[in-house]
C-alpha cells in the first residue's frame, strides 16, 4: 500500500458515495446513465468473486463489499426507486458494443486461462470503458449537473492515481501487471477531455455545458 493507491481508492469511494448521495438527496437520477452504473455493477461483481476464495486484508475485503454494495444500491435507485426520473431517452449507448468485444478480449488476452482469472480480466477491460455511456449521455444532452461532474472527476482521478501506484510498485516492488496498466491508461485517457472541461469550467464556478 502506497499513498497513490490509498488516495486512489478513497477517490473511487468518494465518487461512488457522491453519486449515491446525489440521487438520494435530490430523489432523482436525471442526467445519470443507468447503463454505465449497470456496467460498474458487473465490473465489481466479476472482479470481486475472489471474496469467496481468498482473503487479502480487512481493508481489501471491506472496500470490496462497500464497492459492490454501493454499485447495486445505485442501480436499484435508478431502475426501481427513482425510475420515474431516469432519463432513458438520452441513455442510448449500445452497451453490447462494449461488453461483447471486451468479453472476447478477456478470453484472448489474460494471465491465466481459468474462469476466475478470465472474469477478473473481463472486469478490468470493462471498467476501462464502462463510463462511455455516461460520457455519451452528457455529449447528447450537452450539459451535466455540477455534482455529476464532481462524481466523474473523482472517478477519473482514481484510475490516474492507480497509474502512479503502478509506477511506484514497479520501482519499489518489481510488481508489473500489463493488463491492468494498459486498461488503466485507456481508462484515464477517456477522461482527459472531461478533465479539461472540469478544470476550465466547473472549477471556475461555471456549469458544464457543451457548445451546441
Amino acid at each position: 500500500m502506497n499513498v497513490f493507491r490509498l488516495t486512489g481508492d478513497l477517490s473511487h469511494l468518494a465518487a461512488i458515495i457522491i453519486l449515491l448521495l446525489k440521487i438520494w438527496k435530490s430523489r432523482s437520477c436525471a442526467g445519470i446513465s443507468g447503463k454505465s452504473q449497470i456496467l460498474f455493477a458487473l465490473v465489481f461483481t466479476t472482479r470481486y468473486l475472489d471474496l469467496l476464495t481468498s482473503f487479502i486484508s480487512l481493508y481489501n475485503t471491506s472496500m470490496k463489499i462497500i464497492y459492490v454494495g454501493c454499485a447495486y444500491a445505485t442501480v436499484y435507485l435508478i431502475y426501481a426507486k427513482f425510475r420515474a426520473t431516469y432519463d432513458g431517452n438520452h441513455d442510448t449507448f449500445r452497451v453490447e458494443f462494449l461488453v461483447v468485444p471486451v468479453g472476447g478480449l478477456a478470453f484472448l488476452v489474460n494471465h491465466d486461462f481459468s474462469p476466475l482469472e478470465i472474469l477478473w480480466t473481463f472486469s478490468i477491460y470493462l471498467e476501462s470503458v464502462a463510463i462511455l455511456p455516461q460520457l455519451f449521455m452528457i455529449s447528447k444532452t450537452g450539459e451535466a449537473e455540477t455534482i455529476t461532474t464532481h462524481y466523474l472527476f473523482c472517478l477519473g482521478v482514481y484510475r490516474a492515481l492507480y497509474l502512479f501506484n503502478w509506477i511506484w510498485r514497479f520501482y519499489f516492488e518489481g510488481f508489473f501487471d500489463m493488463i491492468a496498466i494498459v486498461a488503466g491508461v485507456v481508462q484515464t485517457i477517456l477522461y482527459c477531455d472531461f478533465f479539461y472541461l472540469y478544470i476550465t469550467k466547473v472549477l471556475k464556478g461555471k456549469k458544464l455545458s457543451l457548445p451546441a
Binding site: 475472489d50 481468498s54 508489473f176
Partner: peptide, 10 residues
Amino acid sequence: VIGRTHHDEL
C-alpha cells in the same frame, strides 16, 4: 513479479 499471482488491488 510479472503478471498477477493474487488480486491485492481493488
